[in-house]
Amino acid sequence: MNDHEEDAMSGEDGSVGPALHAPEIDAALLAELVAYLREHRPELREAWVERITEAQLLRVMSSEEVFSEMTAVYDNYVDALETGSVETLRAYARSLSERIIHRGVETHEVLGIVLLLRDVLARALFIHHQGDPELLNRVLDAYEPAANRIAVTVGVSFVDERERVIRDQQAAIRELSTPVLQVRGRLLILPIIGVLDSQRARQLTEQLLSAIQANRAKVVVIDITGVASIDVTVANHLVQTVEASRLMGASAILTGLSSGIAQTLVDLGVDLGSMRTVGDLQGGLEEAERLLGYRVIQEGDPVLAPQT
C-alpha cells in the first residue's frame, strides 16, 4: 500500500486541529474546573435544558428523552474536558447521531445544543470566578479551546453520520430506480432522470447490458432529456456504455442531449464522434426503427478493408 492509505487508516479520522490541551494548561486548574462542573451538574444541566427548550431545539424528542440524552452529553462533555481526548466523545456522538437522525433531528439543532452547553458552562465559570479577573482569564484560557474542539467534534460526527445515512438511502434508491423499458422486442429505451454520478452510471451500464442480453436487443436508445448536467467522468461512462453495447451486438443512440450538455462535452474534449446522437427521444426512436430493419455489415468495414 502507498503512503496515503496508511495515513488515512492509522490517523484519527475527522481529527481537526491541535490536541485539546495546549501544554501550558495548568493541570490543577483544569482539575478544579472539571470538579466544579461535575459538582454543579444538576443545576447546570437544568439551565442548559431550559435554554434548549427556549431555542425550540429537539422538539421531536420527548422531555424524558431530552433529559436522558442531555445528561449523557453533559457527562461526556465534561469527561472530554478532563481527559483531553475526543475518542470517547466521538464514539458517543456517533451513536447519538445514529439514534436521532432517524427521528428527524437536524444539524443546526445538534450544533445548537452543544454551543448552548458551552455557553451555560462558560457563564457558570464566569460567575464562579468573577471576583478574580486574572484567575478567570486563566480558567477561560483553559476552557475555551477545549470547549470549541468538543463542539467541532460533535458537529462533525453528526454530519458524518448524516452523510452515511444519505449515501445508504441513495444506494437504495439507485437499486430501485430506472427500469430499462423494453419496446417492441429488439429495441430498448433507457430513460435517465435526475442526477447522474459515477456510481449510478456504472449501475445503469450493468442494468442496460444485462437487459440487452436478456431481451436480445439490437438497438438501445439512451435518453438523457431528464439529466440536467453531466461532468466529464459521467460523459466518458456514457461513451463506454455505448461501446460496451456495441460489443454485445447492439447499436446505441443517445437522445435528449441538450445544447448545454453538448457544449459542456465539447469543451471537456469528450469524443462523442462514434456515438449516434439525436436531439429528442422521438427522433431517436425513429432512427432506432431504421437501424432495426437494417443491420448489415457495412461496406468499407475495417474487417473487409486492407489490414494495416
Binding site: 500500500m1 496515503h4 488515512a8
Partner: peptide, 21 residues
C-alpha cells in the same frame, strides 16, 4: 495494484482528498 469496493469508494476518496478520483 489495488481496487476498492464500489461501496467503500466514497469513504476512501473523502479521507484522502489529494488522491485522483
Amino acid at each position: 495494484m489495488s481496487k476498492w469496493r464500489e461501496r467503500d469508494r466514497h469513504a476512501v476518496v473523502r479521507d484522502a482528498p489529494d488522491r485522483d478520483g
